[in-house]
Structures are given as C-alpha cells and as structure tokens.
Amino acid sequence: MNATQQIPLALEPRPALGREDFLVAPCNAVAAGWIDAWPDWPVPLVTLVGPAGSGKTHLAQVWRARSGAAELDPATGDAADLTEALGEAHAAVVDDAERLAGQPAGERGLFHLYNLMRERSGHLLLTARHPPSRWSITLPDLRSRLESGAVAALGEPDDALMGALLVKLFADRQLRPGAGAIDYLLLRMERSHAAACRLVARLDQRALAERRELRLPLVRAVLEETEREDASAERS
C-alpha cells in the first residue's frame, strides 16, 4: 500500500429495495410478473430462483411489504413455535430456502409451513439459487410439494439489464461514473450479477483509496486486474 492511499471503511452500501427500484428486463420480467400478480397466484408456492445478486431478495422484500408476509426461519423451533410465529398471517417468505435442504429440522419446518399456508389458502414465497428439484432434500413429502410449486427464474442479466444494473449498483454507493465508463465495462466484463457486484465494489474501494475520479483509466486498470486474477484462478 503506498503512502497516498487512504484506508477505506468497509461500509456496506444500503441497497434500495422498493418495487420501483427493481429493474425489470427480459431476464427477470416473469419473476417480477409473479410478484405483481399476487394475490392471484394459482399455486400456494412460488420459488424465486436465480444467481447471486439477481434480485431475488429484492423481489421477495417487495412482496413481503405488499402481502404482509411473515418472514421466518423454519429451522428454528418446532411446529408449535412456527404456528405461533406465523399468527394469522396468510403469507410467508423464506429467504435462501435452499440452505434448509438436508437439515432435518429445517426440512420439517418448511414442510409444516407449506402445509399451514396451503391449509389457509395462503401463499409461500421462497428464494434460492437453484430450483427445488435441484436441492438435496431428504424428506420425500417436502420434495414433491416444493417441486409442485411454481418456479420463477431470474436469469443472468441480458444486455438491456446489465447497463441499468451497473448504474444502480454505482448509485447504491453514491457513485456517478461517466457514461464512457459504463459502456467500456459492458463490452468487456464478465456478464453476471456477481461479477458486476464485485467490479463495482472494487471500483468504489479503489476510487476512494486512491482518491481518483471514476473515469476510464481507473476502470480499465481495475478490469485488467480482475481479468488477470480470474485467469490465474482458472489455471490453478
């Protein structure tokens, strides 16, 4: 670290999670459509599926606010606790539900939650990286229930979304890069949510540490640096 560098505080940005903050593009339009279509869901369960950073949690929060859903962790407590935690709610949301697969308490809890919601003609929303058919669920009754629900996929960003996503990610950190920087990134970066998040975080950190403007030279340097790292990670 050279003398002119400042040590930036690792303050996590607070992302904007309103419905109007959600960027709808072809790769996530169906998922957003599901959220907007509530309460007219023909199934008791919808699982939002997509890679890291694709907006699952964002949509789940939009839905939670709209439906008044209880947000719970089925792995804690037994059926009695769960029923009490739920109260009169007719909607429930479980973030990153995939982590419950393979955990006896978590699976039972989720099973019970599903049954409760179904019984109340309520709705359950799950988020996960992969569709339930890919989880290593040990409880067959849970598996068949989760597989019978709807899966709303959020894909990796298409070209239309990627630019908007970068702008939003920068805005969440109160950064306003020049248009040239965005275009430059769009043509050259790895096209995934995760990569966009990593890049923006690194650009933010570097701009702050080196007190540099977020312009093309810095963007180019950071991009080349990540490419070199990725290439060496691939070789090893």
């Binding site: 169906v30 459509g33 599901w34 279509a37 869901w41 023909p42 199934v43 068949s144 229930r145 597989e147 019978s148 629900g149 709807a150 899966v151």
Partner: peptide, 16 residues
C-alpha cells in the same frame, strides 16, 4: 403432485 404442479406452472406462465 409434481405432474399437476407442472401443468399449473405452464398455465400460470401462459396467463402471466
């Protein structure tokens, strides 16, 4: 259950 769920998914998507 999964079979009927699959049909529901198709219909829900088509409607959506």
């Amino acid at each position: 259950r999964v079979l009927e769920g699959a049909l529901n998914r198709l219909v829900a998507h088509a409607t959506l």
